[in-house]
Design a binder for these strands. Structure first.
Lengths: 294, 294
DNA sequence: CGATCTTACGGGATTCGTAAACATA
DNA sequence: TATGTTTACGAATCCCGTAAGATCG
């Protein structure tokens, strides 16, 4: 049994118009072609769908039963393919993207705005989460795309660089070190160190750097918000280390930024995903936009 | 957009087996043919359904979304056509048939038994109803097929004769008229007349015959069951008129039957339906059986 | 006789299978 | 290199459209 969609369309058209001639016009095919299509379908199912009588065509009882079924099949068929096409045409779909807080709060908004403008029917889910959490989310498939520093281990994920960023020191106005044009991490460790919570790229880096220098860990304030970090520094509670991406925000909050020198201070920021070639159209479009605009 | 069933089957087969080679075997087509079928489908929907990588094929996110939809489409498709085929093959379906009581209780059971044996999966609905009700039911499409005397008016229905039957008088044993070999209706009208209820063929005929003879209507007992008619006659409550088809039953109930002479006493019994050429397969099979066996 | 569906037949597109080229682990 | 997929090409099939035939009101 191998009925074709065309044959089913033929049957429905004839049934709905009540005439081969009209139906052939509706389907834009010749009447004989339609006649043969229906005939073949009838041979296939093993019985007549129409009661022929040159004048006034009507459905057989079986045809009567089958018509609504056939109509539903055709509708479902068309709907399914239309949905799929919309998915590819980015007129529908979902994008779930994560970014580390520094990127999420600096460059991402403009990119998202443009994406939204170009693909207004894509549902966007954004998560601004710290590095470790982000990588885990990508690995587990909870988010399709991430933007963060290049991870230490690329196991189970792929990384595509966008640009480089470096860590900077955040100091309150009037801090003695503010006079210097460039600092070393060691110089910051006499103050209370304010960072984002564990798992953030900043914290990962500072912890590693402190260990590398053989220094004792300083007092650390953990904040969950970059604005909190900036505000605490501005209030003189301590000094901080953040990606340079956050410079603007820190300045706005009344804190100063100074570059830090040291090994591994500069790292690549890029797109993290499970498999680049397996991204959905929606994610692929976001990836392209990021590569283009960032 | 004009995807074919084959293409959808190709997609599902590849997705389910995870390999073009395996899928081509399952579908009994060559691997290149399958490759092209999927490729065409992908071009049609406007994007990739699979992520190709010679080694270890996997679904794209869109393909992942589409697979269950496609599986359901194919299943619905197959089911619909399988149902239709079963209908034509008389492995499924409904037959609704009505017969006048005399036929329903005499010859119909054997025919039904044979029908049931040959088409055990057809649901049979039998109604034994009086003539007028039967014709109305056929006209309204409540039953597809009827067996009864030839109706006066064939408007909206078709009649196909099976055999002829005549009305007979039913007398209690020892009734004076029982000595005669043949009666006239007039001779019965001195007794109480027992018939089936209004609308039955017997009643229609007797009423008409009595009116035609210019006689006053006799006392009439209306029964709803043929057995009641027979039993009442046997008990000496009166005489009855029934189709000769009922003779056996009347004898079994202890009543005697004598032919009646008179105009229109013999009438054709046959199949009544709305349109002969519009019968369902199940009804057509019953019609053939009736024509063959009755 | 006229409207409508079916059959007949030639042309064109699609699809198939075989064989070769190609890509990745 | 070996496995599995895609491209190339000749052949068969299927489907369509035009034209002629059949059927019923």
């Amino acid at each position: 049994m191998n009925a074709s969609v065309k044959q089913l369309r033929a049957f429905v058209a004839v049934a709905e118009t009540g005439s081969f001639a009209e139906a052939s016009e509706r389907l834009s095919i010749s009447q004989p072609a339609l006649s043969i299509a229906v005939k073949k379908l009838e041979e296939m199912v093993g019985g007549a769908l129409f009661v022929r009588s040159t004048r006034a065509l009507c459905l057989s009882p079986e045809g009567e039963l089958f018509l609504p079924v056939a109509q539903r099949l055709l509708r479902d068929w068309s709907d399914a393919f239309a949905d799929l096409q919309r998915l590819y045409a980015l007129q529908q779909g979902k994008l779930s993207i994560a970014a580390m807080p520094s990127f999420a709060s600096s460059r991402l908004p403009a990119v998202l705005a443009e994406y939204r403008e170009r693909f207004p029917n894509i549902d966007i889910a954004v998560r601004d989460i710290v590095m470790e959490e982000l990588i885990d989310s990508v690995r587990r498939g909870r988010v399709e795309l991430g933007v963060a520093f290049e991870p230490e281990s690329a196991e189970g994920i792929e990384f595509e660089p966008l640009f480089s960023d470096r860590f900077v020191a955040v100091l309150p106005a009037g801090h003695p070190l503010a006079a210097r044009r460039q600092l070393r991490l060691g110089q910051l460790l006499n103050d209370v160190l304010i960072t984002l919570n564990r798992g953030s790229s900043t914290r990962l880096w500072t912890d590693a750097a402190i260990a590398r220098e053989g220094r004792e860990p300083p007092s650390i304030f953990e904040a969950f918000q970059l604005t909190t970090v900036g505000a605490m520094v501005a209030a003189g509670l301590g000094v901080a280390v953040v990606p340079a991406l956050c410079r603007e925000q820190m300045l706005q909050l009344g804190a100063l930024c100074r570059p830090i020198a040291g090994p591994g201070i500069e790292r690549r920021v890029g797109i993290i995903c499970r498999r680049r070639h397996q991204l959905s159209s929606a994610a692929m479009a976001m990836r392209s936009l990021l590569l283009e605009r960032v």
